[in-house]
């Protein structure tokens, strides 16, 4: 009578190797997760019209604190700029002219956010274009990251309810273009 040979015991599985393999897979999937989150965040694109505008707190060059969420009930024009940005210069004078048209109204606020700039150059820019509405630096680029800006100049207009209603990724061509973006929101 022949004895079967398939009953030979299997070699014992290495417990240590299994733990290392599990850790390796967990680490690999963790890394892939982080990369995926980063890619998703980048692919989100700019903040969408009709959505709540990301809140921010800006400390102006004069030291005043402006918090977007405290400006509810007002139309807020948020303009990202930099002193080294030539297209920003195209609209700087028009932005200031538009601001002077609205500054006596209690329901319109202009806020300039100076993106990746140096303070001396920024102050020179504000002086050159005689800009009087509040401006401040985007410290650690937190505000531009929240708005997922793609460069400068970019302008976002937020309505009285804190909803983003208008965005422009190039300089305004004229004062009337700025007015045409703001006026429909007034008297709502």
């Amino acid at each position: 009578m022949q004895e079967p040979i398939q009953n030979l015991p299997k070699p014992p599985a290495s417990k240590g190797l299994t733990i290392w393999a599990a850790l390796g897979w967990i680490g690999l999937f963790g890394l892939l997760g982080i990369v995926a989150l980063g890619l998703l965040s980048k692919q989100q694109g700019p903040v969408q019209i009709g959505k709540a505008a990301p809140d921010f707190t800006l400390t102006t060059f004069e030291g005043e604190q402006i918090k977007l969420s405290e400006l509810r009930g007002k139309v807020v024009v948020v303009n990202f700029w930099a002193s080294w940005c030539k297209p920003c210069e195209q609209e700087a004078a028009d932005m200031e002219t538009a601001w002077r048209l609205y500054k006596d109204r209690p329901d319109v606020v202009f806020v300039g956010i100076d993106w990746t700039d140096t303070e001396p150059a920024a102050m020179g820019y504000l002086q050159k274009f005689d800009i009087t509405y509040p401006n401040g630096p985007d410290l650690a680029t937190r505000i531009s990251q929240a708005y997922r800006t793609t460069g400068v100049p970019e302008t976002y207009i937020i309505d009285q309810n804190g909803i983003l209603v208008y965005k422009k990724f190039s300089p305004f061509e004229s004062v009337s273009e700025i007015q045409s973006a703001i006026d429909p929101l007034l008297g709502q």
Binding site: S83, W84, T116, D117, T118, P120, A121, P137, L139, A140, T141, R142
Partner: peptide, 28 residues
């Protein structure tokens, strides 16, 4: 402009580390 800023800070007596910290605070 940023190199000019570094020059200005160095002339004011800032150290390399202080300037790097300042840049990190300003620009991330």
């Amino acid at each position: 402009q940023w190199r000019d800023l570094i020059r200005l800070k160095l002339s004011e007596g800032w150290t390399k580390e202080q300037i790097k910290d300042y840049f990190a605070e300003q620009y991330g």
